[in-house]
């Protein structure tokens, strides 16, 4: 045998290892994807199957039609489109306000030095240990109480709901955003001051444009969070035409699985669509923001 033999042997074992690696990782990935994707074909088939009955559902529908979507849009007792609109409206208004209000606070924490700053910042984070949904009863009573005097912010109003979401979103997001404000060098502010800029101008014209990506991430995460909230919306909203998608869809399917399965599936697909679009179009931004944000607390 020649000298090159062990080398050859080694490289062949490497290719074998390579194959094994690809095989194993493909198998694991396939298993994972099977688990992840398992519900989806069923939901899509149920949505397109005009049968609309869970117990008779087959994997491949006998007939494909849009009956479920049409009945979902036209049933006046379950104003699905209204729910979808409500959810989109409430989530976007909350997201915009959260970004605006928290960025103001974060600017102050990042740019000013004042007594009590550190303590205040720390308490903001400490309060996050006790999320305000734990105080759901108190929130319910408070919103009811406010609504007695200011009807637009009371129970069963979108104003009241947005108000509660805003309160809950302040602490963590101010904290998160402050971290990103800190990454903008202070020298930029100082050179702008020399040109006669005020704090407000620095904030609007220098800092905000520079951290636009993180503003977007926080806005999107807030949007997704509010869109997915069930508890607070459930407690505060009661009228059918004011519900959010989460509460409405639960009411739609609750105890009716067998008779509205198709309609529900159609609604679920449409309801997930806005979030899917937002997420996949900004995936990189969000994943980095999410892991960083999580590490930051």
């Amino acid at each position: 045998m020649s000298k090159s033999d062990p080398k050859q042997k080694r490289s062949s074992s490497i290719t074998r290892q390579k194959r094994l690696n690809v095989l194993v990782s493909s198998l694991v990935a396939l298993l994972g994807m099977g688990f992840a994707l398992f519900p989806f074909p069923w939901i899509i088939s149920a949505a397109l199957d005009p049968l609309n009955v869970l117990s008779m559902q087959t994997f491949l529908p006998k007939r494909i039609a849009l009956d479920n979507f049409i009945s979902l849009f036209t049933d006046p007792t379950r104003p699905y489109l209204q729910w979808l609109f409500n959810s989109l409206k409430i989530s976007s208004v909350t997201a915009i306000l959260v970004v605006f209000i928290t960025s103001l606070g974060a600017y102050a924490f990042s740019r000013f030095r004042f007594p009590g700053r550190r303590g205040l910042m720390f308490s903001l984070l400490l309060v996050q240990v006790y999320p305000n949904i734990l105080a759901m009863i108190a929130l319910f009573i408070i919103v009811w109480q406010i609504g007695r005097y200011i009807p637009g912010l009371g129970l069963d109003t979108h104003g009241g709901l947005i108000m509660v979401y805003l309160g809950g979103a302040m602490g963590g997001n101010i904290w998160l955003m402050k971290g990103f404000f800190d990454t903008v060098p202070k020298e930029l502010d100082e050179s702008a001051w020399i040109d006669g800029a005020s704090h407000w101008q620095v904030y609007i014209h220098i800092i905000l444009p520079l951290i636009r990506p993180i503003l977007t991430v926080i806005g999107i995460l807030t949007f997704i969070g509010v869109y997915g909230d069930y508890l607070i919306a459930r407690i505060l909203l009661t009228s059918a035409d004011k519900l959010t998608l989460a509460v409405g869809m639960q009411g739609l399917i609750n105890l009716n699985y067998n008779v509205v399965w198709g309609q529900f599936s159609a609604g679920a697909i449409l309801g997930a669509l806005p979030i899917l679009i937002i997420f996949y179009s900004t995936q990189k931004l969000i994943v980095s923001g999410l892991t960083q944000g999580a590490v930051k607390g």
Binding site: L124, Y130, N132, A135, G167, G168
Partner: peptide, 14 residues
């Protein structure tokens, strides 16, 4: 604005 909202809807409810 942020602190007022927090006082009214987080601290006060807790």
């Amino acid at each position: 604005a942020g602190l007022s909202l927090m006082i009214l809807l987080v601290i006060y409810p807790l």
